[in-house]
């Protein structure tokens, strides 16, 4: 049997905690298999990838974009990658650093935190998810990502197949795990509006879901807010919780409900129309034809 070229893969990280890349690095039992399945061309925990100019089949990108320099790197990665996958909630939604996205006072907030500083390395900008600037083929959310969901996506892409991620909210898995419902017990649980796939990690430990996987395609945020208000949570508390990890996804889809005026900070215009963050279903056709067909010759 002829040797079939493995898909060329790159891993990159922008502004985030590196938790997603570390999740992958910590797969000690599977790491060798990952290296066998794909040809890893770069695995950068920093954003100094401008010199890296090789064509890639798949790029996995962690972190949000917070400087002009990162934006240029991201565009470069996009240009030379057939499939670009955002990994982790920072790359997908902007991360907690995007919790105040859309408030329009970013420069003021920046000065309050850092003071009047001269930017020597790169020009900062408000945190945005990757799809604010480039086309993202798949979003694998999570804070951090779940390794099984990552393997699932990796193997699908390596075979040139579309990736269908979990479409249920956290509640479905929470019931599979037979947890007592924390929302019914009066806690502020975001399980019903949050994308599943984490195996309801937090409710399994008696902690309410804080929404770290971002909203589901069907999130009924209006009803969740009403319900929580009935449970005597303040509007501010509810909105802050929803925005903490929901970032751009919340702003784009539910600005009205959250009382957000979607003004963009001056000089940083949104580049395209809002897009649903987890666009697996929609992206299917396009990416299927673009995906590396590494194994296509290998049929019995």
């Amino acid at each position: 049997m002829a040797e079939i070229p493995k898909p060329k893969v790159g891993f990159y990280g922008f502004t985030g905690c590196a938790g997603d890349l570390l999740t992958i690095l910590h797969c000690e039992d599977e790491l060798l298999d990952i290296f066998n399945a794909v040809d890893i061309r770069s695995f950068l925990m920093a954003s100094s990838d401008v010199h890296d100019d090789e064509e890639l089949d798949i790029a996995f990108v962690e972190g949000s974009i917070t400087t002009d320099h990162q934006l240029e790197s991201l565009k470069g990665i996009r240009k030379r990658s057939k499939v670009l996958v955002a990994i982790g909630s920072c790359a997908c939604f902007g991360g907690p650093q995007a919790a105040r996205l859309g408030c329009g006072d970013w420069e003021k907030r920046f000065k309050k935190v850092y003071g009047e500083v001269k930017h020597t390395v790169a020009e900062p900008r408000e945190s945005h998810p990757l799809d604010e600037y480039v086309k993202v083929d798949y979003c694998i959310p999570g804070c951090p990502i779940d390794k099984h969901q990552f393997f699932f996506a990796l193997t699908r892409l390596a075979k040139g197949m579309p990736v269908e991620l979990t479409t249920f909210p956290v509640c479905a898995e929470c019931k599979w795990n037979e947890n007592e419902c924390l929302l019914l017990k009066g806690e502020l649980c975001l399980g019903p509006v949050t994308a599943g796939g984490c195996n309801s990690r937090c409710p399994n430990h008696n902690l309410p879901c804080v929404g770290c996987w971002g909203p589901t395609s069907e999130a009924n945020v209006a009803s969740e807010i009403n319900l929580l208000k009935e449970r005597n949570f303040s509007a501010e508390e509810i909105v802050n919780k929803l925005r903490l990890f929901g970032g751009a996804a919340m702003v784009r889809r539910f600005a009205d409900l959250l009382g957000i005026k979607t003004e963009e900070p001056a000089g940083k215009p949104r580049q395209k129309k809002a897009r649903k963050p987890v666009a697996a279903g929609k992206a299917k056709k396009k990416t299927a034809s673009k995906s590396p067909k590494a194994k296509s010759g290998k049929k019995r």
């Binding site: 909210p169 509640c171 479905a172 599979w176 009924n220 969740e224």
Partner: peptide, 13 residues
């Protein structure tokens, strides 16, 4: 439908 969270819990149980 305005109230339903589409959480699927009713089917699971």
């Amino acid at each position: 439908a305005d109230k339903c969270l589409a959480c699927g819990a009713c089917s699971m149980v």
